[in-house]
Computed example of a mutant assay.
Amino acid sequence: MKLKAALYGTERGLRASSETRAEVVELITQLEARNPTPAPTEALTLLNGKWILA
């Protein structure tokens, strides 16, 4: 929820201040650390499916 709140009103980051960008990078780093898959970009079988960018 913090990540979504940090991005709110930034037009998907296009109008984000440098402070907001730094906050988003920190939140993403924290999120990545919680991923149980050691190398998620190499686990192609986990990426199968239909993805929709909301």
Rank of each mutant, 00 (worst) to 15 (best):
N35M: 09
I28H: 11
R12L: 02
L7N: 01
R12Q: 07
E26W: 10
K4W: 06
K2V: 02
T45A: 14
T37I: 12
G9L: 11
L3R: 00
R12S: 06
M1Q: 14
G9I: 12
L31K: 15
K4Q: 09
S17N: 03
W51G: 08
K50T: 14
S17L: 06
L31F: 13
I28C: 13
I52H: 06
V25P: 01
G9H: 05
A22F: 02
K2I: 02
N48L: 15
E32D: 14
G49R: 00
E42R: 04
V24W: 02
E11T: 05
E23M: 01
L47Y: 10
T45W: 14
K50I: 15
E42T: 07
A6C: 07
A54W: 09
L27M: 08
K2C: 07
V24T: 00
E32M: 13
A39S: 10
P36Q: 11
A6I: 08
R12F: 06
L7T: 00
E11W: 10
A43F: 08
W51E: 03
E19G: 04
A33F: 06
A33W: 07
L27S: 05
V24Y: 01
A22G: 04
I52P: 01
M1P: 14
L14D: 13
T45Y: 12
K4N: 08
T41R: 15
G13F: 05
Y8I: 04
A39H: 12
N35T: 11
E23C: 04
L7Y: 00
E26S: 15
R34S: 13
A54I: 04
P36V: 14
K4T: 03
L47A: 14
R21G: 04
A5V: 05
W51I: 01
M1K: 13
L31S: 10
T45F: 13
I28G: 05
R12C: 03
E11L: 04
I52S: 10
E26C: 05
A54V: 03
R21A: 03
N48M: 12
G13D: 03
L7F: 00
A5E: 02
E23N: 04
E11C: 02
E19D: 06
L3P: 01
A5K: 04
N35C: 14
Y8A: 11
L7D: 01
P36A: 13
R15M: 08
E32W: 12
R15C: 07
